[in-house]
Design a protein around this nucleic acid. Structure first.
Lengths: 196, 196, 196, 196
DNA sequence: GATGAATGAGATTTCATTCAT
DNA sequence: GATGAATGAAATCTCATTCAT
């Protein structure tokens, strides 16, 4: 129960402050618990952070995999994927901004007790997500609905547009806003900006 | 002269370590100067960082404005802009990654001695850059070569694809790599992925 | 039963780590019990430690008293005492090393909840042990086999040689090693190093 | 200058409290300085401690070497060495008690930043000191004034008696007390306790 | 203008101890 | 009697910043 409170408080604080500016003191104040309790459940600040990430992304990844497995035209699946992505990132924008910054090779100096190997696990998780997107696009090429292109780059491009739209605050939390943005993205990504 | 050395050293250290992990000690070691000297030229660590940003982006912004002012078809200008963007971000990838993380508009918490007003100036600089891109696209619409779309979103989308390509390490420093990526981006952005 | 397990585990951990580096967590892990249980039987970490000491030294003290009471020449009793001392300290080297460090009479600072009065009891136990040695020596003087000397200092000197030999790792656990060292000590202590 | 104050304060606090119970806060309070200053001069608490040891023992070691090099009968040199040892340990009793405890193999768990290799250096220093004593004794054997015996054990034995006399508080700081104890030790060590 | 010794607020982490179940 | 989740005081260490020279 305390574990839950700590995770929730940590989510709020990390999102608001970023990893470094967030302090354990602030987290426990919000969680209404003692400092020692945090260290009963998590080996250190970094592992608390990554536990949060793992927990928050589990549902999203499952949903994305489900979409990829559907027996539908790839273009439809792409649209659905865009919407799921958007929804997830809108919900978790702040935390993910932090993650993306921290995950970078920055500081190869082996900070605290989190090994590079552990960190690698999260990088793989990210690669897997983009990979799912990529597989959907490849399917479209095989079906002839998507033209030949570098699917790896395309998937990354699509991903980055989505993420940026969220991080730049283009999308709010309301369903309308998400729908509209999802349509805009899908539209440009699929048909380009050129008039013909 | 000392000022120059400090800025160069700061560039290296911030790029390598990120804003928080970078220490003034490390910067002065690299700059071969004393700690007090840093505080003669810069009011604090944060202002040193932003000075760096301002200085590094000046040339790029000018170049982008030049392109926008050219008397050429908007589509050609778009392609040129994409290349200039890519070149700049490839060169300054690490530092800008740091900037984007730190700038995250939220800052509800009034961090250190840098005022929200000061910070706003940098946000404006960013807005201006995207704005230039946006104006080029609008020109295309006016000329009939680009179809009706939300130029604000489109400009942001284009910008984000570029940035992500760089941040994700898709582009190396060589001209070839930049050319190829610029073409990929332009291709998909202009014509979409759909086959027809 | 739990009490026994805790004491045994505590013995192992204190011996291995010293008083401060030993943690209650490690002790209960080894004792296969709960943390609260420790505090049911012992008022705190310090009292657990001293209980251990008291328990371990009981047998040894009895044995030494028995030797002192024998109706034999004092020199023979001295030799026997040296061997009993050696055996005991070899067996308990690590724990006693810790004890000697912690007991250092100074304790001007009233450490934790253990009162100076409590601590004094353990000092007395130590004094008693040396006292027994001293009485044997005095007996020798009375019998004329040991020459006039400061028995108090001599007893302490003998004691310290024994302890150091053990602490410095001169004696292993095997009977041979103990015999040989006991002989060396007795030899020098009784006849000195001077050639004549 | 601050460095000197810190070392002096550290000497006092470590002596009084032992390594673990001594706190940096207490040291700086006594040294009348800031916490950061300690860490400007010493990499951590452990290195501060060892710096202290190194500094305090330098003079003593030189003096002992001088005695060993004298062109005098070994028995005279032994007496002199006993007095120098006594003087040194009386002066530094508390700190050395701490050192002897900490230096033990206890806690092979690699505490803090001080490597086992570094620690080894201090063990060697200790071995060297005993070695000097041992060489004097061997000289006596060669000269025929000391009888055949295990010089290694004998040197350790002598050393331990000296140390214990000090640690047990047999010797005070006055010259008289040192003289008397030095004589007692020399007497028993050289001629034994047996009457003849 | 240049310097770097001095500083202390503040961060993370440890661990003996309590107490409700 | 046994338990272990919860606690928080206290410890070590970092690092941006100041200021006298």
């Amino acid at each position: 129960m305390k574990r839950r409170q700590i995770l929730d408080a940590a989510y709020t604080v990390f999102s608001r402050k970023g990893y470094h500016r967030a302090t354990v003191d602030e987290i426990i104040a919000l969680a209404d618990t003692g400092k020692g309790t945090v260290y009963n459940y998590f080996v250190n600040k970094e592992q608390l952070f990554y536990t949060l990430i793992k927990e928050r992304s589990a549902g999203f990844e499952a949903e994305l995999d489900t979409i990829a497995a559907l027996a539908e035209p790839a273009l439809d699946k792409t649209k659905k994927a865009i919407r799921v992505f958007l929804e997830f990132y809108v919900q978790n924008a702040d935390l993910w901004r932090v993650l993306m910054h921290e995950m970078r090779g920055l500081g190869r100096e082996e900070p605290s007790s989190f090994t590079e190997a552990e960190r690698e696990k999260y990088r793989e998780r990210f690669v897997h997500t983009i990979g799912t997107l990529q597989r959907i696009l490849q399917e479209g090429i095989d079906q002839g609905t998507i033209r030949q292109c570098d699917v790896h780059k395309a998937a990354h491009g699509l991903f980055s547009v989505i993420v940026m739209m969220v991080f730049q605050g283009f999308v709010g939390g309301e369903q309308d806003s998400i729908d509209s943005t999802a349509n805009s993205i899908a539209d440009i990504f699929m048909y380009g900006i050129v008039n013909r």
